[in-house]
Amino acid sequence: MIVNYSYLFVPGDRPERFDKAIKSGAHAVVIDLEDAVQPERKDAARANIAVWLENGGKAVIRINGADTPWYEDDIALLAHPGIRAVMLPKAEDPASLAAFISALPASLPVIALIETARGLWDIEKIVAIKGIKQLGFGSVDFQLDTGIEDENEGLLYARSQIVLASAMAGLAPPLDGVSVDIEDVAGLERDTARAKGLGFGGKLCIHPRQVEAVNQGFAPTAEAIAWAERIMSVADNTDIQGAIRLDGKMIDRPVIERARLLLKVDA
């Protein structure tokens, strides 16, 4: 099973970093046209990306929002080959989001970032829109919009809502927001463990040095794989009517299916 745990942002106006980002070990590179690029550099960034894509580059592209003067030119860029998905910031209006998807020049997967109170409020409508593959949590912008200062318990409700809405809509598990302190390795590891524990499928990264910790944090541990293999070795050789007994514990179908899925991820 193909997994994408780490999504590494790289500014669109720094073309010398594109290939370096690809080699970083990140499962997906997100070339950014939004926050990482100053207004006077938007056109140059777009031109950089077009050349790189035409020369075989492959990446996710984060475009500017529909309420900006750069949106239409960003949409035109999406006709280039090599775009793995398009990431839309501040997804909050279902009608505008549906119109955006219908205007795409190709059937590109869409990663919608929930970054505002309104986006979270209307999340059930957002995930119901055809064409959305995955949600991401823009936690920093969400804190700015809501005034929430606590990055942990204060954002627990929002994170849980994003995970639950994704599951209900059958979307890929969502991406957790960035950890802004690139020097705090222990903090990054805690953030990654929290995200995995809450049901996120990956995490957004803002620096290459964050990639390895995120990949390792989301990947199944050797102990978890061994546990899953033992469960499946018993389950595959047992006519399961209810539960099976393993090491003195009762193992039922949900646990067996969890083990099966874990081994698919590890494959």
Rank of each mutant, 00 (worst) to 15 (best):
D191I: 08
N152T: 08
V86H: 04
I132P: 02
P254M: 01
R245H: 06
I49N: 12
A158P: 05
G131H: 07
L33M: 08
S233V: 03
E149C: 00
R260Q: 14
I132N: 04
A169V: 10
E257C: 01
A76Y: 00
D266Y: 01
R245M: 09
G138F: 07
R17C: 13
A85D: 02
L104E: 10
P109G: 08
R159T: 00
G12D: 06
K203C: 05
A85V: 08
T238P: 09
W227D: 15
D32A: 01
K249L: 10
L198D: 06
I162Y: 06
G147P: 09
P173E: 00
I22C: 11
D122C: 03
H207R: 00
A158I: 02
P94N: 03
W121S: 08
N215Y: 11
F137R: 05
K249I: 04
E124F: 01
E189A: 11
E257D: 12
I182N: 11
A228V: 10
P109H: 04
R253H: 07
A44G: 09
A165K: 10
S24Q: 13
R260K: 14
S102H: 06
G65E: 11
E151W: 00
K20Q: 11
D122R: 11
I123E: 07
A259M: 08
T68C: 02
A186S: 06
Q241A: 13
D239L: 15
D247M: 12
S166N: 01
M232D: 07
K249D: 02
P105R: 11
I182L: 11
Y7C: 04
M168C: 03
P174A: 09
T146C: 07
Q161T: 08
G25A: 03
V180C: 05
P94D: 05
E115A: 03
A21S: 15
E229A: 12
T221H: 09
S107F: 02
G57V: 14
D252T: 06
G82R: 12
A28Q: 14
S24D: 14
G136R: 08
D184V: 07
I114M: 04
W70Y: 15
H80M: 13
G199A: 03
V211Q: 01
L8G: 06
E72Q: 15
N55S: 11
G12Y: 05
T238K: 12
P173Q: 02
E153G: 12
G82P: 13
Y157K: 04
I206V: 15
N237G: 15
S96W: 05
D122M: 06
I22K: 13
V127R: 14
L120I: 04
E40A: 13
D145I: 00
H207E: 00
A66V: 11
E92H: 04
L78G: 15
D236P: 04
L108S: 06
A226N: 14
A85H: 07
L77A: 10
A103K: 14
S179G: 03
A172V: 09
R17T: 08
V214D: 13
H27F: 07
E92Y: 02
D252M: 01
G242C: 02
V140T: 10
A99G: 15
G202L: 06
I251V: 14
I101F: 01
Y71W: 10
R118E: 09
D150L: 00
E34A: 08
H207P: 00
A186V: 04
